[in-house]
Design a protein around this nucleic acid. Structure first.
Length: 881
RNA sequence: GCGUCCUUAGCUCAGUUGGUAGAGCACUAUCUUGACGUGGUAGGGGUCGCAGGUUCGAGUCCUGCAGGACGCACCA
């Protein structure tokens, strides 16, 4: 037994314990084993990222779940890894370059990528070490990086196979383009922001008739240069006669037709819609329907191109100002209105998105989406918390559009497509083709410049982490993964796509369960962000309060809620709990001298010991039940209450006199140590460090590490309902006596007489403990009121007992009278409710026998209490006279 | 507009087949009891957002309304 310091001081042991675990290989799972497998893949953090509270939460939840499974005897593997995070990482490096006044183009692709790798290597240690700090029991030997060789091979294979199956295609489409990132992005990477804009009303004159015109309303006048039609609703009587006419687009003087399309809302604006297929998604659709040409007037940098005659080279914003100015001058601008609109912006850099026509690679979604939907519908994958995300998931999959996976970036998986330099032919192959071009015979190939969306590779994580495309033992054992734990914000980005690709390439779901966790916010419910300055840094918190404290706090909040409001105050509260565990353990250990470690827990005799062992088992059963549905908040609450309010408040206090009792001492010592040790095991998954530290010092230590100890499942055989019931009475008795003493400010120890037919024997047996707990000199029992100085005693009534405390000098009849009347009022209210129920024919007819029985018992109890209280009040009245 | 969800004690939240409203923090009073004042003990505090309905019985189920969060779509 080692010495424990005076108070809980986590900094003294956490880091060392972690390295011991890692050194001893406790985190490592076996590729094949007799034990049932349990696997999780860590959602790979951005390799250049820093640990934030979201990471801390996800690590805590996953580690907690996994540690319990490991202790339960599962062959567990938690696959670690980091993500190359395409745009994000490229931006980090570009920003560094910018400081030297350079862009990536100054370096060239090869040099630039070299530089990114350097940055990657430099950063990699930060995030992984911070992950270690949190206590995450990751199988580090299996760590992966999404751009490492093996991973890239898998990505290529997937891409090629998708192509061969007709699920990948190249096409020219209108896509969302970020002019700052200079790349296409997917629908998911576009955010809609409300903004105050303007609506411009512009006249287009009909060709050949300067007296006729139509007025269109637009928020983007600069796009009129790319207009190729004006549309009106076919049912709109106002404009129908114009069908077939042509109007002239100002500046470019292009003649465009007036077309009819039901899409046009007659109520909105003027009822005339300008059609710009090159810069608007809806217009693009209408253009396709009507066979319109597409004119692009804005380029990839957000500037007006050569088609924008007279405005070429201006930014879209400058062009808008100039066009509005000129329209005003020539009298075709009717009016400008304020207009509340939403603007699409790049979710990464907040730049306004420009819809652009361009050649991109797409993954066909409809077929895979359907399969992914059924996997959840038929229960092959279960979502937790139950009943929350299924609908959202289905809706997205039902309305899904093809996924634009090509990015015009340099950092990422370069698309395995090989173009012939001498003709336009291309091959989709994992490696550069060895044969000459099938069309022109040239051997001059170059690889596609675009890279893949980061989420493309991320979607392969559940099967690539265990080894795919190699047919490894690891893959056999750990696919499907047991659980996927992640934030609900990436349900579409990641979860849905993992399910699609898992089904497509493994023919089996990637994981059996998905657990979604909440978003961490500050105490006011606001998102934490550096600019707001409301960030709580997990590393600062763990430095101050310890990792276990933070983990316990986060676990306590990991319930069904979608937001977690975190404040330092709540963290501090839980650090007190850690200290409490520390202090109680110290007490247990210092009282363990002469302990017989061979004592058998089945042999315990004393009711108090039976009680705490019963409570321990009830607690273990409850904890395991809650673990199964991933309600970690209930797990931690159950453990908190058991340890603090049962083990410490009652059992430890009770054990003190028992330890001095020669007969009870040996058994009590053992039970103290036993219950404390089993509690440590129960808590270990949530608070791994303090439990290991204390376990190490336990005189009943039953293994090398608590990490590999058997997780207590709880045994019904040890749950003694009668004992718990009797002890409940004792608790109530003690509280009631304490209550009298507090009300009257009685500090001195005095005597108490209890009249209770039912519990006399029990009270006599537990005399020592009760006098100790209630600070009494003596407690005695009596069968009736004979010999009790009724007028000179303070009285209290609880179910099945009356308590008399001789304390003549303290009695205040008015106070007593008020106290009993208040109590009687409460009981009468309850009694009324029960009476009403039991005299209600409907209740008796329809309620279950069990419920009726319960009500009858209540009636009995309340009636008895009420009678007692009434007689006590009469007594007071007579005494007063 | 469609969808998911929230509204319970001053604050943060639990309350899972409908059966007498709970916890933590905060607050009040009190206690130097030999593990812990990061502690012990006792206590105050809620017409469960509003209005209907179903039911013998509703915080719990249904409908409507109000306030709020998030997702998707549309937005000339």
């Amino acid at each position: 037994m080692s010495e424990l310091s005076g108070k809980y001081n986590p900094q003294e042991f956490e880091k060392q314990i972690y390295s011991e675990w890692e050194k001893n290989g406790y985190f490592h799972g076996q590729d094949s084993s007799d034990k049932p497998p349990f696997s999780i893949v860590l959602p790979p953090p951005n390799v250049t990222g820093a640990l934030h509270m979201g990471h801390a939460l996800t690590l805590t939840i996953q580690d907690t779940v996994l540690r319990r499974k490991r202790m339960q005897g599962f062959n567990t593997v938690w696959f670690p890894g980091t993500d190359h995070a395409g745009i994000a990482t490229q931006m980090v490096v570009e920003r560094e370059l910018l400081k030297e006044g350079k862009s990536r183009h100054d370096l060239g692709r090869e040099k630039f990528i070299e530089k990114v790798w350097e940055v990657k290597h430099r950063h990699h240690g930060f995030i992984t070490n911070q992950t270690r700090v949190m206590g995450a029991s990751l199988d580090w030997e299996r760590e992966r990086f999404t751009l490492d060789e093996h991973f890239s091979e898998a990505v290529n294979k997937v891409f090629v196979q998708l192509y061969e199956r007709g699920l990948v295609y190249r096409g020219e489409k209108l896509i969302s383009w970020c002019t700052r990132c200079s790349t296409a992005i997917s629908d998911l990477e576009v955010e809609q922001n409300p903004e105050n804009g303007k609506l411009y009303y512009i006249r287009y004159y009909v060709k050949g008739d300067n007296s006729k015109f139509v007025t269109v309303a637009t928020t983007r006048p600069e796009t009129l240069l790319g207009d190729t039609a004006v549309a009106v609703n076919p049912n709109d009587k106002r404009f129908k006669k114009l069908h077939g006419e042509k109007v002239i687009i100002p500046f470019v003087n292009r003649e465009v037709p007036i077309i009819l399309d039901e899409y046009v809302d007659m109520e909105f604006g003027t009822g005339c819609l300008k059609i710009t297929p090159g810069h608007d998604f809806n217009d693009y659709e209408i253009g396709r329907k009507h066979g319109l040409i597409t004119v692009t007037v804005i380029d990839k940098h957000g500037k007006m191109n050569e088609n924008a005659v007279g405005f070429t080279g201006l930014t879209a914003k400058q062009a808008r100002e100039k066009i509005v100015e000129e329209l005003k001058n020539n009298g075709t601008l009717e009016k400008i209105e304020d207009y509340a609109m939403t603007i699409s912006k790049c979710s990464r850099c907040d730049t306004v998105i420009e819809p652009l026509l361009s050649n991109q690679w797409f993954v066909k979604m409809d077929g895979m989406a359907k399969k992914a939907m059924y996997a959840v519908k038929d229960g092959r994958i279960k979502f937790y918390p139950q009943g929350w995300w299924e609908e959202t998931y289905y809706r997205w999959l039902e309305n899904i559009r093809d996924w634009c996976v090509s990015r015009q970036l340099w950092w990422g998986h370069r698309i395995p497509v090989w173009y012939c330099k001498d003709c336009s032919h291309f091959e989709v192959m994992e490696h550069k083709p060895k044969k000459p071009c099938a069309r022109c015979g040239s051997s001059n190939y170059y690889q596609e410049n675009d890279v893949l969306d980061t989420w493309f590779s991320a979607a392969l994580w559940p099967f690539v982490a265990p080894g795919w495309p190699k047919d490894t033992a690891t893959l056999k054992t750990f696919y499907p993964n047991s659980l996927m734990e992640t934030g609900f914000d990436i349900i579409f980005f990641w979860v849905a796509r993992m399910i699609m690709f898992g089904l497509e390439f493994m023919d089996e779901v990637p994981f059996k369960e998905v657990l979604y966790h909440a978003m961490i916010r500050d105490e006011k419910g606001q998102k934490m962000s550096k600019t707001k300055g409301n960030v709580i840094d997990p590393l600062v918190v763990t430095e101050k309060y310890g990792v276990d404290t933070l983990r316990f706090t986060l676990a306590s909040m990991a319930g069904r809620a979608r937001d977690i409001k975190l404040s330092e105050n709540s963290i501090q509260g839980y650090s007190y709990f850690m200290n409490k565990i520390w202090q109680a353990s110290k007490f247990v250990y210092t009282n363990a001298q002469g302990l017989d470690p061979e004592f058998n827990i089945k042999d315990i005799k004393y009711p108090l010991n039976k009680w705490i062992v019963s409570r321990l088992n009830s607690t273990a059963l409850a904890v395991n039940k809650k673990f199964e549905v991933y309600e970690l908040n209930d797990v931690s609450e159950t453990l908190y209450k058991f340890f603090w309010h049962e083990f410490c408040d009652w059992y430890i206090e009770l054990s003190k006199p028992m330890l001095n009792d020669e007969k009870a001492s040996a058994e009590t010592k053992y039970v103290l140590c036993y219950v404390q040790r089993e509690f440590l095991k129960l808590l270990h998954p949530i608070a791994p460090f303090v439990t290991e530290k204390l376990y190490e010092a336990s005189p009943l230590k039953d293994g090398k590490t608590i990490m590999l100890a058997k997780y207590p499942e709880g045994d019904e055989k040890f749950v003694a309902k009668e004992v718990e019931g009797s002890f409940g009475f004792i608790q109530e008795l003690v509280s009631s006596i304490r209550n009298i003493k507090t009300i009257y400010g009685i500090n001195a120890k005095n005597d108490v007489v209890v009249v209770s037919k039912k519990h006399s024997k029990l009270i006599d047996e537990l005399k020592g403990p009760i006098t100790k707990l209630a600070t009494l000199r003596d407690i005695s029992t009596a069968d009736d009121l004979k010999g009790i100085d009724l007028a000179g005693s303070l009285k209290s009534v609880i179910p099945d007992a009356e308590i008399y405390m001789p304390a003549k000098e303290f009695i205040d009849f008015d106070k007593e009278f008020a106290r009993f009347n208040k109590k009687l009022e409460e009981v009468s209210k309850d009694l009324n409710i029960v009476n009403n129920k039991l005299s209600n024919k409907g209740f008796l007819d329809k309620a279950s026998a069990e419920v009726i029985e319960k009500e009858k018992r209540k009636l009995e109890e309340f009636t008895k209490l009420s009678t007692e209280l009434k007689s006590a009040i009469t007594m007071l009245e007579t005494c007063r006279k």
